[in-house]
């Protein structure tokens, strides 16, 4: 039905006449296949943004949990406990719509104070046009960026709770003597926190954060639940049976091979991450008063 689009190889003009390697080369370079390669980029981008944002949430959560003001402390602790006690997928399934409606509701309150219609009309969630996110006349890419940001935010809230737990533990692992010394020097609580505790906690937090990074990588296949067209979406779409009526490249049910490809991709990604994190860990341990730091010192001496 569709005329052949722009192709990378010249021999792809008539896919029905080629076979073997050439067919495969053409097949794997259709515009639709380029989408799955792009979606790998989406996953990497999500990881690159989510990691620091989740760390920020985690830092906030951990600081709140150890606050001396008890309401703040309660909020911090329940954030950590609730998110961690519940399967993440439960959050993924309803956070995106919930967050979307929450933001639109807030904007609605600000931008359309004179609105006299109810926001919930039966099943519908209706806000004024100016409050819609993104605006109704926004181009498609804005919608995609917005959807992607919601996914990042959801991931960050969930993984922030785990990061908070790691950082909370790391703050408590900093030797008491360090804090006491700081106090003896007459530092205020704030100074002790920022100048002594925060710089030293990272080495204790690193094993937990490394673990969290691995877990984060392995949570990315759930992105499609958040409405982002990710590699799982494309693997399902591309691998499914195609009849010759609707494509130039008919094939049977190939989803198993596409998922085998994803499996290999994740294994490689994990391996690379392990190597990089190992390096960082050795770097951070240098000169620290921990077992690993001590071992490095001894190795250097002998």
């Amino acid at each position: 039905m569709s005329e052949p689009g722009a192709t990378i190889f010249s021999f792809c003009a008539d896919p029905s006449s080629i076979d073997g390697f050439e067919w495969l080369a053409c097949y794997l370079t259709t515009a639709k296949h380029l989408s799955i390669y792009w979606s790998v980029g989406t996953v990497l981008l999500l990881l690159a943004i989510t990691a620091p944002v989740a760390l920020l949430f985690g830092f906030g959560g951990a600081s709140a949990a150890r606050s001396r003001v008890w309401p703040v402390s309660i909020i911090g602790r329940s954030y950590i406990a609730v998110v961690r006690g519940v399967p993440d997928i439960a959050f993924f399934l309803f956070f995106v719509i919930a967050l979307d409606q929450f933001f639109e509701y807030l904007r609605h309150q600000v931008k359309c104070p004179d609105w006299d219609m109810p926001i919930r009309q039966g099943n519908d969630f209706v806000v004024c046009a100016a409050a819609k996110l993104p605006l109704g006349n926004a181009p498609q890419w804005m919608h995609e960026v917005y959807g992607f940001s919601l996914a990042v935010l959801t991931f960050s809230i969930v993984f922030g709770a785990f990061a908070a737990n790691v950082l909370y533990g790391a703050m408590r692992a900093v030797p008491r003597g360090q804090i006491e010394t700081a106090e003896a020097y007459g530092m205020t609580q704030r100074q002790t926190f920022w100048r002594i505790l925060v710089p030293q906690m990272w080495v204790y937090a690193l094993p937990g954060l490394s673990n969290l990074w691995m877990v984060l990588i392995k949570a990315t296949p759930l992105l499609f639940l958040l409405g982002v067209e990710d590699i799982v979406y494309w693997a399902k779409e591309l691998g499914s049976t195609k009849t010759s009526k609707f494509t130039d490249y008919p094939h049977g049910d190939w989803r198993m091979w596409y998922f085998a490809g994803l499996l290999v991709f994740y294994l490689c990604f994990t391996k690379v991450s392990e190597a990089v994190l190992g390096r960082i860990s050795r770097r951070l341990s240098r000169g620290q008063a921990t077992a690993a730091g001590e071992a490095q010192r001894k190795a250097a001496l002998s």
């Binding site: 759930l222 998922f259 499996l263 994740y266």
Partner: peptide, 21 residues
């Protein structure tokens, strides 16, 4: 390595197709 290095979600998918075959 195989089971810790890959997402459980993908393992489920892959296993389901493999079991079908």
């Amino acid at each position: 390595l195989l089971f810790r290095g890959s997402p459980l979600f993908i393992q489920f998918f892959f296993a389901y197709f493999a079991f079908l075959n």
